[in-house]
Amino acid sequence: MLTDLYIFADSPLHRTRPGIKIGVLVLFCTLLFVFEGWVTLALGGVAVALCLALSGLRARHVVATLRPAVWILLAIFLVQSYLVDILFASFVVFRFAVLILAATVVTATTRTSEMVDGILAGLQFAPSWVPKNQIALGVSLCLRFIPLVLSVFHDVRQAQRARGLDRNLTALLVPLVVRTLKTADEVAQAIHARSFD
């Protein structure tokens, strides 16, 4: 569950600092919208294709990224073809594909831990009213809680299956929420006991 979407390879893109990659991505997306047109989009498409090749991503990675969006993109294509024309429909759908793939380049070449470290490192420069320690704690705690919630969920489902209630979402969610809230309260005590404030 907690394996990230990182694709292992050694490339210049893998070695670039996460902050720079995110900055370039934001700039790239903005440019595509500000200078709207086939020329910019084509240039953008070539740039993304180059980055994909450079970072060692294979065709199956590209397919895997776009697959979840296929149905909604198809719907948009049909609506646009009907409302305007096929050329315009292709433009809109192609732009989505370029945007999503550009983001994939960043995601696939940056580990989650690097990204999180990047966020925390960036926090050092944040103004003093930003609760840096609390943000860092929140991120770590969430990663710690996901497997915990899943295991409680598993327990509760087994207990409710014994009573024939395992398809009843309310019967699953109430014990899950109450039990994890109690855990959370004790975790807060434990954090306090370990001198965090």
Binding site: S140, L143, V187, A190, R194
Partner: peptide
């Protein structure tokens, strides 16, 4: 101990 361990 699940309630005491904070980090992954």
């Amino acid at each position: 101990p699940d309630n005491q361990i904070v980090y992954p």
